[in-house]
Design a protein around this nucleic acid. Sequence first.
DNA 1: GAGTAGATCCTCT
DNA 2: GAGGATCTACTCA
Length: 204
Amino acid sequence: MKVMKKLSLDFYRRENVLQIAEELLGKLLVANKDGIITSGRIVECEAYAGATDKASHAYGGKRTNRNKVMYEDGGLAYVYLCYGIHHLFNVVTHSKDIPHAILIRSLEPVKGIEEMLRRTEKKQIDNTLVRGPGNVSKALGIYTTDTGTSLRSKNIYLSDDGFMYPKREIFSSPRIGVDYAGSDALLPYRFYIKGNPFVSGKPR
DNA sequence: GAGTAGATCCTCT
DNA sequence: GAGGATCTACTCA
């Protein structure tokens, strides 16, 4: 019997964002929108290590209206609009004034698949349903208005059902879409499940 | 199959 | 006024 447990605040409020990112793999992201529950297992994510990370919105301690949520205590959602089209969902980690965050890049659909198909206007499930961070948010119905939401609220939360991927299936690589970050773009801050069809980027 | 351009709008300078 | 933690479709081969 599987027991669903929401991740504790202690989980988010640790210092090592890379470790948290790796441990997020296999966890469930659950969204409860309009009384409809959709959820998916995290199979890919990227760590953004705050002020020292050129690829982060908070690089150099930059603090703006948009990214201020990153400076809050861990355990909040940070959602923002990219390219005017895509809502990207992040998990804020660490403690107050340390702007660490983890971008959820893709999920393996678990619950509410029909609802996800409806939202993304797809006919059947395939590996494009939730491929890439833009589609993850779309499928789960997450929008910028959800930024700052506690990840222990009813609307959006992460949970652990005891499932774990074998260590040998967990791989890391440079992050995607952050070429502008110079040398920091090469940091192996992306974690994913090798061989999972829902991982974005190149197949296999 | 691989590579590239266009979409589209909010946020920061 | 410029540009972005992206995605899709279209071209060419």
